[in-house]
Amino acid sequence: MSGYASGIVAILCINLIFAYAVFITAAAGQLNLGAAGFQAVGAYAAASFSNLGWTPGWATIPAAMAVSGLTGFLLAFPVLRTKGVYMVLATFAFGEVVSGILLQTSLFGGAMGMVVPDYLPLSSLVAGAVFATLLVFFLMATRFGLALRAIHDDDLVATVMGVNVRAMQVAVFTIGGALAGLSGALYAHHFSFVEAQYFNSTLSIFVLLFVLIGGTQTAWGPLAGSLFFTLVPETLRIGGSWRFVIFGAAIVLMMVVRPEGMITRTLVARFRRRPAAVKPVAITVGEPHVR
C-alpha cells in the first residue's frame, strides 16, 4: 500500500472509532459536541504512559481508555442535568476546557505537544476499528441497545417501561468516553506526536457531522458517515482548492435529501428482507389524532 493510501486508511480507522464514540450517546438522544476533548484525554494519557516507559507499548491503550472512560463517567453527572441545546453547549465547553488545560500544562508539553515513543502500526488501528465496530453493533442488538433507542424516542415512556434512563445515559457517556479515548490513543501511537491544537472544536463538529449525516438510528450510520467524510474530500482533490466548497455543498444536499441520515432503519430493513415478505400497509383516510 502506498504511503498516501495507508495514511487515508489510518485516518479512516481513527475517524470510525471516534464516530462510534459519538454515536453511542447520540443513539440515546444526547449530542456530544466535545468529543475532541475525550479524544485528547485518551491521546495524552497514552502519550504520558508511553513516555513513562510502559511495556509492552500497547498497554497504554486500555489504560488510556480507562482514563477517558472515567472522564466520561464523571462528566455525565453534571452534563445530564442539562437537556437539548444546553447539553450540546455543556459538552462543547468541556472540549474547550480540556484543550485549554493541555495548552497551559507544561507537564504535557503545552503548545509544543508531546512525542510518543512507542509506534503502533496500521494493523493496530484496523484492529481497533474492527473492535469498536463490532462492540457497537453488538450493543445495539441487545436489550441495552433497545433501551437506548427507546430513550432517544421518548424518555418518559422508557421510564414508565422500567428503563433506568439516568443509568443508561451515564453508561453511554462512559462507553463513548472510552471509545473516543481509544481513537485518541491509537492516533498518538501511530502518528507519534500529539498537540492540543489538533483536538479543537472543528474536530468535535466534524465527528458529530459524521454521525448525524451517517444516521443515528442504526450502527451502520457512523460507518457510512466516516467513509463519506474521509473519502469524499480526498476524491475531490481533483477540484483543487474548490474541494471544500464542493464538499460543503454535498453536506447541505445530504441534509436536504436525507434529514435523518444516510442510513435509516427503513433502509436497512429493505435490504434485510425479501420484497415478498413485506406486507402492504393499509392507508386509512381521515383518521383522527394521528401523531
Binding site: R143, F144, R149, A158
Partner: peptide, 29 residues
Amino acid sequence: MPHLSVVENILLGQHSRIGGLGELFAPIG
C-alpha cells in the same frame, strides 16, 4: 417509539422483567 419496529416496541414492554446484566446484554435482534 416511532423509530422502533412493532416487535421492538413490544419487547420494550418486557424491560422490567430483565433479571440482570446478563439479560441486559444478551442480543435480542
